[in-house]
Nucleic acid binder design. Structure first.
Lengths: 205, 205
DNA sequence: TCATGTGAAGACATTCACAGCA
DNA sequence: TGCTGTGAATGTCTTCACATGA
């Protein structure tokens, strides 16, 4: 099994390369890819070893074929269906980002409990009441959910999500979810990062 | 210097404990604090060693005094002034989160370039044109900036930010910023996390 | 007995340094 | 010469295991 860190970088490389194809760059050296991806050249080379891709010492890596290898490894052929629960600012932000980028992600349905946020179409995506979560997720075989509800609803909604068969949750609520260990959880605390950076700027140099 | 990981957990402990004070819990064991903070018991004990806090083997840690030690270490007495550049969904989400939580963060000013988003008061916070970034940040001695502008504006706005004296940036644009090494950068890519979780759910077990 | 504090080990990640290649 | 690929070294994080204490 590959580590989360390497996985993260591989996804980042893919994205960097995708941007390059528009500029018609055909070849790239490890130090260049490193620069635009926020990694070190050695990291790039080691990461590409992991997916079994080899470059040439003269021309570095071929953008097109490397991209293909990355797409293969990251299964970028099949669309990944995603449910988004909580149609607030964060939810909408993610929705718009995903719509505006080349990803294999597809937000299939939105959920909320506020009357004025359900049974609507937002950016091409239909919103349902949370009560329909189970039905819609099972029908569409959705395995990934993004949780952008208020803190005090997060735990119970998360439980509802995994009852539908969802086994990966991206959690934006600033609270630790208590779920079975086989569920993949990624916590994205928006405030904690700011506090962290604030501390670091005060205590660096 | 303390590591980012430990720092992150310390902030998390502080938050967990704060929630406990409302329930009038006075003592807590490392395994309990670990559970509600998403860490392991040993991590808790080691992290608290770092800040020089000691508990008792009978009653564990005293919530109140531990909280005090954490506040001390994390400088939670002084407010940290923050600028938020980009009044879109992400920006508003962060603004609302910060207003609704007990933090030492204070968003002092908002910036954008859209006419309908400037010279307004949003959730008690005034919004300015980005042209005023330098003036406002210097006047208020702002050192931290949250960057929530579209991808293609991110690099140039980030440069403007550091010219004002800001030396810590939380970047939500899905692009690697190219800034001097003494600037603290925290990248918060909202899409990458989803791609990562999607891959992990497909390849786990 | 049960929890803390911590040396030591283990696991993981990054970087160094250089062989090999065109 | 300047790059890739990689063994070895280093650094960092986590966990183990247990002495200590009430």
């Amino acid at each position: 099994m590959i580590s989360r860190k390497i996985l993260e970088r591989l996804i980042q490389y893919r994205r960097s390369l995708l941007a390059l194809t528009e500029k018609e760059t055909t070849n790239i050296y490890s130090h260049e890819l490193a620069k635009i991806s926020g990694a070190s050249p050695v990291q790039v080379r080691r990461d590409l070893m992991v997916i079994g891709y080899s470059g040439s010492s003269v021309k570095g890596y071929e953008v097109a074929s490397l991209l293909e290898s990355l797409n293969d490894f990251l299964d970028h052929s099949e669309k990944e269906k995603v449910a988004l629960v909580g149609v607030g600012y964060v939810g909408r932000a993610i929705l718009y980002y995903i719509m505006g980028m080349h990803t294999n992600l597809e937000i299939v349905a939105l959920f909320d409990i506020e009357p004025d946020k359900i049974n609507r179409v937002i950016h091409g995506c239909h919103s349902y009441h949370v009560n329909e979560l189970n039905k819609v997720c099972k029908e569409n075989n959705i395995k990934i959910g993004i949780l952008t509800v208020p803190k005090n609803a997060a735990q119970s909604v998360a439980e509802k999500m995994i009852n539908t068969g969802i086994n990966g949750i991206i959690n934006y609520a600033p609270i630790e979810l208590n779920l079975p260990p086989d569920i993949i959880i990624e916590n994205k605390d928006m405030i904690l990062s700011v506090e962290k950076v604030a501390w670091l700027t005060r205590h660096t140099r």
